[in-house]
């Protein structure tokens, strides 16, 4: 379980990274961020990149910032950076809740938010956050920078809209106003495992009823997604357990669950039903 050989390129800026990608991506060059997904794949030789473009020492990419009402998360912000609220308010709280479900402390100390998005594991947590919030992925290639909306980013298991020669430079998440509520729930076999079902709900309450409901799921289908049809069941209604059960049933019915040796489609559907209902309840808590 030793990786095959590669050339290591330590780059000092995004421009250098993009230039190196332009040069090497066609022959198997890749970005190395936290390495917490890529290196295990290399150890099993499931990935055999010939060049690794190491972005870890690019200055200034390791801190999120608030910019024009958006939380900007540059490429080297580690998972551990979210343990404490990155910004005051509901978004910072929600991110701090979610990050506790991602792997374990030493992995969070290296793994990056953007790496997780680029890696696009169907059972990962951050991609669900990205789609739930309709965040934006900023990609830079030699031809320039483009912004990819979350809904268009994930294309399949570990496949994304990112081109081979593009670097994901940052993620932007709309900040939440005070009064925004979130509820997150996931089911995993052991603490820290990749999830077998994830649900993230969000809304505001005004005059006793739910407004602007959002509900995104992950871990169930090849890509995470928002469920607008189900969100409509929530909007305009007062939150209550009967409603949540109805919504959870609706969610369970509208998915085509993946199957693996540990989880049948039927079990996964039930897991999603339970996690959805619990996420909705937590959004009220």
């Amino acid at each position: 379980m030793k990786p095959s050989s590669f050339t290591h390129h330590e780059v000092g800026s995004i421009d250098e990274a993009v230039a190196a990608l332009a040069r090497f991506s066609a022959e198997g060059g890749r970005i190395l961020a936290g390495g917490q997904s890529l290196v295990p794949m290399m150890a099993f030789r499931l990935a055999q990149p010939t060049h690794l473009i190491d972005i870890n020492r690019i200055p200034g990419l390791d801190r999120p910032r608030l910019e024009a009402g958006e939380l900007v998360i540059p490429a080297c912000v580690r998972h551990a950076g979210f343990h404490q609220q990155v910004i005051p308010g509901p978004l910072g709280d929600m991110l701090a809740t979610v990050v506790r479900h991602i792997a374990h402390v030493p992995i969070r100390n290296r793994g990056t938010f953007c790496g997780s998005i680029a890696h696009a594991d169907p059972s990962a947590e951050w991609p669900v956050v990205l789609v739930a919030l309709d965040g934006v992925v900023v990609a830079r290639g030699v031809a320039g920078t483009r912004e990819i909306p979350a809904a268009a980013f994930f294309q399949g298991i570990m496949t994304t809209a990112l081109a081979e020669h593009e670097m994901l430079t940052e993620i932007r998440l709309p900040n939440a106003a005070a009064g925004q509520r979130y509820g997150f729930c996931e089911h995993a076999r052991r603490a820290g495992d990749y999830a077998q079902a994830i649900a993230l709900a969000g809304w505001r309450i005004s005059e006793g009823v739910i407004r602007q409901a959002r509900l995104a799921i992950g871990g169930v289908e090849p890509t995470p997604r928002r469920l607008p049809a189900v969100e409509a069941l929530l909007d305009g209604h007062a939150p209550n357990d009967a409603l949540f059960s109805e919504v959870a049933d609706a969610v369970a019915h509208c998915v085509t669950p993946m199957e693996d040796p540990q989880v049948s489609a039927s079990l996964r559907r039930d897991l999603l039903r339970a996690t959805t209902r619990r996420a909705l309840q937590r959004a009220c808590a």
Binding site: G35, P40, A43, P106, I107
Partner: peptide, 22 residues
């Protein structure tokens, strides 16, 4: 050698990391 067991944990730059994944 794939980040799960933690036997390789060391401290780099003040934080614990998996030394098999670096």
């Amino acid at each position: 050698e794939h980040g799960v067991c933690g036997s390789c944990t060391v401290i780099v730059d003040g934080v614990a990391v998996r030394a098999c994944l670096m």
